[in-house]
Design a protein around this nucleic acid. Structure first.
Length: 414
DNA sequence: TCTGGGGTCCTAGGACCC
DNA sequence: TCTGGGGTCCTAGGACCC
């Protein structure tokens, strides 16, 4: 049996936890640059705020109902997520952290799952203050279904018999299934397949032909045959990227250089944390695709590195070389993206006999930089090309304090 | 004025190998 | 008239997830 624990309205719950006067009040959390709504409390959902709604287009609604607004605060959410996961891990040795707010649990051999589920749920809520729901079923896909159903009931749902499964699937919208995205949903509904039960009654050959092997796995999981195992070890990443829209559009080469250098530095740090090196990097520029009155261009370039590296200096230098090659005057850019691909573990890097480079282990400068920045705060020591003023940085008008990760912001009680 | 960011997997087709 | 069989690797495009 698989359990799926999922935090309710996770980002909104994190913000509300530290402002209890907002209990029972509508809350929304915005994407980077305060662009669109990415999390809503139940009260905000009830007022008709849609997922992905564009913030400036719903400002009237927000004012009218006094909806509390927050900018994304991933330091806070990441820390709260870790607390939830630590608590969940006390209940089973088999834990797969699936996303920032979701976790699969291996529950094979456990008995009295209903009661156990409530124990898990109540413990997490008590210890972290974050409300969660728990779905338990014979497969991951069905655990997802159970979880979604649990959210509407008392927070725990166990699907342990064929009858229960059939009953739930009969009313379960096909587009809400894990693995059915917009395209498949569109195709299925056009054929009159509207529920999960109808989908699993389709012939498997049809599913194979139109939805590939991925669809077949989904189909089998709906019938209770587990095809998607728990992943108990972390796979090595294959690619990493840092991509962010600017706080304002810019065509200024100096600003684009600053942003590219900053994003690449951040990516280099991520690579070192994962203890891997990149063999190639891609730099991509984007104009604002939503504005039909703007001239559009999306230039991109991939550059191979002489040897796999993860040090800030070499990566920034290469990224700026890429930027120079793709930059065009006369466009207003909204975003730059840097991506590292062909990732190789630090310890398995093949050196180049014609180069002086000795490998990541000899990279003293990055180590010193990381240590200083860890101690004195991010950005204490950085590349000069990252700039001083950084006028292109994120808009985050509604940012909450770093309650759990910064001594200066810790909550004081009398 | 203003529209997120970071990933994975699968398939088909082409280039290449012996 | 007729043109093999068995592979690997890479890339682009399309789907999906949170």
């Amino acid at each position: 049996m698989f359990g799926l624990a999922d935090c309710n309205n996770f980002y909104a719950s994190c913000e509300r936890l530290f402002q209890p006067q907002l209990n029972g009040m509508p809350i929304v959390v915005l994407s980077n640059n305060d662009g669109c709504v990415i999390a809503r409390s139940n009260e905000a959902k009830a007022l008709g705020v849609k997922m992905g709604a564009v913030f400036y287009q719903i400002k009237d609604l927000i004012a009218q109902h006094q909806i509390a607004v927050f900018s994304s605060h991933y330091t806070l959410y990441g820390d709260m997520s870790a607390r939830v996961m630590t608590n969940l891990a006390r209940f089973t040795p088999e834990v797969e952290v699936y996303s920032i707010d979701e976790c699969f649990l291996g529950l094979q051999g456990y008995s009295n799952l209903e009661a156990y589920g409530h124990l898990v749920r109540n413990t997490v809520i008590k210890n972290t203050g974050i409300p969660i729901s728990l779905g338990i079923a014979p497969t991951k896909v069905l655990a997802k279904v159970a979880n979604k159903t649990a959210k509407k009931k008392n927070g725990v749902m166990v699907l342990d018999t064929d009858d229960k499964i059939k009953q739930i699937l009969t009313t379960y919208p096909v587009e809400d299934l894990w693995g059915i995205g917009r395209q498949y949903a569109h195709k299925l509904i056009a054929m009159g397949i509207e529920t999960a039960e109808q989908l699993r009654n389709l012939p498997i050959d049809w599913v194979q032909t139109h939805m590939t092997i991925v669809g077949v796995r989904l189909w089998r999981e709906l019938w209770g045959e587990s095809c998607i195992p728990l992943e108990l070890t972390l796979d090595r990443k294959k690619a990493m990227c840092t991509s962010r829209a600017f706080g304002k559009l810019t065509g200024d080469y100096t600003e684009l250089r600053e942003a590219t250098a900053s994003y690449m530095s951040r990516l280099a740090l991520k690579l070192r944390r994962e203890q891997c090196c990149a063999t190639a990097i891609t730099v991509k520029l984007q104009t604002n695709r939503f504005n039909p009155n703007h001239r559009q261009t999306f230039p991109s370039i991939t550059l191979a590195l002489l040897h796999p590296v993860n040090n800030t200096h070499d990566l920034v230098k290469t990224a700026l070389e890429g930027l120079r090659k793709i930059y065009v005057r006369g466009y207003l850019f909204q975003k730059v993206e840097v991506m590292a691909t062909g990732l190789i573990p630090e310890t398995e890097v093949q050196l180049n006999m014609f180069s002086e480079y000795k490998g990541a282990a000899h990279d003293k400068l990055s180590k010193i930089m990381d240590n200083l920045n860890a101690h004195f705060g991010a950005g204490t020591l950085r590349m000069a090309t990252e700039g001083q003023k950084q006028r292109w940085t994120l808009r985050r008008e509604f940012l909450s304090p770093e309650y759990t990760t910064n001594w200066n912001d810790i909550i004081k009680t009398k």
